[in-house]
Amino acid sequence: MSAGRPDDGFNDGAATPGGPSPSAPAPPPAPDQAPLLELEQVHAAYGPFRALFGVSIAVPRKSVVALLGPNGAGKSTVARVVTGLVPVSSGRVRFDGRDVTDVRTYQRARLGIAYAPEGRSVFSTLTVEENLALPARSDRGRAATAAALEKAFQAFPQLAARRRQRAGTLSGGEQRMLSLASVLVEPPLLLVVDELSLGLAAVVIDSVFQTLAAIRDAGTSLLIVEQHVDRALSLADHVVLLSKGEVVRQGPVDEMRALATSLPGM
């Protein structure tokens, strides 16, 4: 893993002068002050189509960052770069004190990056129970899995009633609940949420956002990609405005509120 190579610490971490100490989880600046997630000059592309041009974003610990911007701004690409689904063509991604630029998606998931993708994001051919058991089983026993399932069903009683039903037969809102429930089974350090409210009824969106608030309160940082600016702002601590693959502005939510709501195309 890249964190094991001392060179990386020197080359990328210009801000961490204390020298490389790969085994120690905390570099000299206290872990609480270093951001949980840091993108540094990230460029990314889909084949020949370039999507991000030097994006630098930081998500502090225990905070909510909203990623706003018009269609095609590269918001979803940022989310995919964070999870490793789309490789960066240049730039670095750091997470929890280590360089994860070359770390594979599944290893990032084990480090604590969870992703609730846009649209349908459950295994539709598996049952509700199996959907929840899949991530939980990564390194647990049977009993722990059962306990985790119970926890998820307590949080989402309407899923418990459908535990043996195929996830593909759930309604859109229930599917979002299910993908959030599988996050809750094993609370991650960071949850990346991509357009979670897309295509949902207003009532359902309310409950989705309540769930997100609950996840935040449990200590998980959130990176939210959202078209509903108002709802995103109600939850966010920081706002990043993206346009055409570049960061236009970023700052605390109070400074950005007026700008964010006045932007065209939102």
Partner: peptide
């Protein structure tokens, strides 16, 4: 169904 979603669940 989706190798990528399996990856997101922390499984290779």
């Amino acid at each position: 169904e989706s190798p990528r979603m399996v990856q997101l669940a922390g499984i290779s």
